[in-house]
Write a protein that binds this DNA or RNA. Sequence first.
DNA 1: CGTTCTCGTTAGCCTAGACTAAATCACGGA
DNA 2: TCCGTGATTTAGTCTAGGCTAACGAGAACG
Lengths: 226, 226
Amino acid sequence: MARLSGSRQDYLKALYALAPQGEVVPTSRLAAHLSVSAPSVTNMLRRLAEEKLVLHKPRGGARLTARGRREAILMVRRHRILETFLVRVLGLDWAEVHADAEVLEHHISDRVLEAIDRVAGRPDFDPHGHPIPDPRGRMQRRTLLPLASLERGARAVVREIRDADGPRMARWRSAGLVPGASVRMREVQRLDDVFELEVAGERFVTGSEGLDGVLVERRGGAGHGR
Amino acid sequence: MARLSGSRQDYLKALYALAPQGEVVPTSRLAAHLSVSAPSVTNMLRRLAEEKLVLHKPRGGARLTARGRREAILMVRRHRILETFLVRVLGLDWAEVHADAEVLEHHISDRVLEAIDRVAGRPDFDPHGHPIPDPRGRMQRRTLLPLASLERGARAVVREIRDADGPRMARWRSAGLVPGASVRMREVQRLDDVFELEVAGERFVTGSEGLDGVLVERRGGAGHGR
DNA sequence: CGTTCTCGTTAGCCTAGACTAAATCACGGA
DNA sequence: TCCGTGATTTAGTCTAGGCTAACGAGAACG
Ligand SMILES: [Mn+2]
Ligand SMILES: [Mn+2]
Ligand SMILES: [Mn+2]
Ligand SMILES: [Mn+2]
C-alpha cells in the first residue's frame, strides 16, 4: 500500500476535523477549511473515493470510510505528538507551533515519530489540551463547552484551546487561559457581548469573539449546576 | 525570494557534493548521483541557470554560482544538524539516520532548525564526523586520507565515515571504526587486497572495499611518516 | 577524413494537484 | 408546476518534476 501523499493526508484530516463522527461534509466546507477551490475538492474526492478512503455521493458530500478515518486519526496523532515535542523538547512557543507541525506531520517516518513521542514523555494531551490518539487510534472523548456558554457564577476548568492565530493564543495565555486553569464567570452581558471572568484570581473582561475556541469542563462549586 | 523547492535543494546539494570547489560537473554524473534520468537533469539545470543558481554551458556541464553554493552549503548544514539531533537527542542509530535527514532537511523551518541545533548542543561535527558549516556557511576544511591508503605500521585517527549502506556502517562501528578512534595498519597485502588493522587494541582484517569511506588523519608514532 | 560511439539535448508524454469559467443539478418559493 | 439561485461538477489550463525515444555534436578511432 503506497504511502498517502501529503495532500491526501490533509484532505482526510480535514474531513475528520469537520465531522469526527463520520457525518457527511459538503464540498464547500472542505474547500473553505483547506483553502482550495471547490473543483479541486471534487477532483480529490473522486480519487480518494477510488482508493476507498472516502464515500463520495456526487452532489451529496463526502464522508470518511473506516480506512479513511483510521488514516485521519493517525494524522491527528502525528500532529499532536509533534506539537507537544516542539513545545516540551525544543522549547518553542505554545502559540506558534501549529504551522511547523502542519508541515512536519507529512514527512516524519514512523521511526522518528516513535522517538519523538518517547522524548516528549509519551504525552496524552498536546500543548493545547487536545487528547492524543494512541497508536491504534483510540482517544479519550470528552464533552466540553465553549467558555462563553457559562452562566453567571459558574465555575469550570479550561481543557482545550483551539488552534487560532498566534496573537490571539498568546493573549489567552497571558490572561491565564491555559489548559488546566480554573475559571469563574463573574458577569455575563449577552446583549453587549461582554464577559467578565476570574482566571487564577485575576479579572479578565472580553467579548465572546475573544473566547471562541476556549473549551471548558464545568465544575461544581458556587455555580448554578443542576 | 521564494523558497527553493525540495528538488532544487537536492540538485544544488548534489552539485556541491560532486564538486565542492565549484568545478564543472557533467550532466551524467549529476543524473547518477540523484538517480534521475539525464533529460530530467538538463531540464532542471536550465531552470536553475535562469534563477542564477548554476552556470550551465549546454554540453559543457554545470557548476554552482556563488548563490547556488551558498544555498547548497546551507542544505549541508541542515542535513548534518538533523543527523546529529536524530542521534544525540532522539537516540536513533548512527547508521540509519541518513534517510530521515534527507527528507526532513527540506521541511524544517529556520526556527525549528535553530531549536534543534540548540538541543543537540550546537555540534561542530555530525555523527559521521563531517564538519557542520556555521550559519554563514563557513566550515573547517581538513585533508583526510582513505584508511586503505595507509602503509604498514602507520598510525592514524578516524575522522569521517562516509554515508554508506546501513549494514556496512554498522559493521564499521562494531569493528570500532568510529570518528575519533585510533588505528594502526598492521599488515598490507595490496595484491590480495587484504588489510590487517589494529583498532582500539583489536585486530580487524578486511578488503579495501570494506574500507572505502573511512577517512583518517595520519598520526606520528611508529609510522613511516616522512 | 570519414565513421562511430557517447553523452547531452530536444520532443513529446505523464501524474499530481492546483486554478478559472462554464455547465448543471436540486431545492425552495411563487 | 416552474423558476431562480446557489452549490457542485465538468471542461480546459497550468506548473513542477519526472520519464522514454529520437536526434545530434564532438571526440575518438580507423
Ligand atoms: Mn495544531
Ligand atoms: Mn498538514
Ligand atoms: Mn547524511
Ligand atoms: Mn534531500
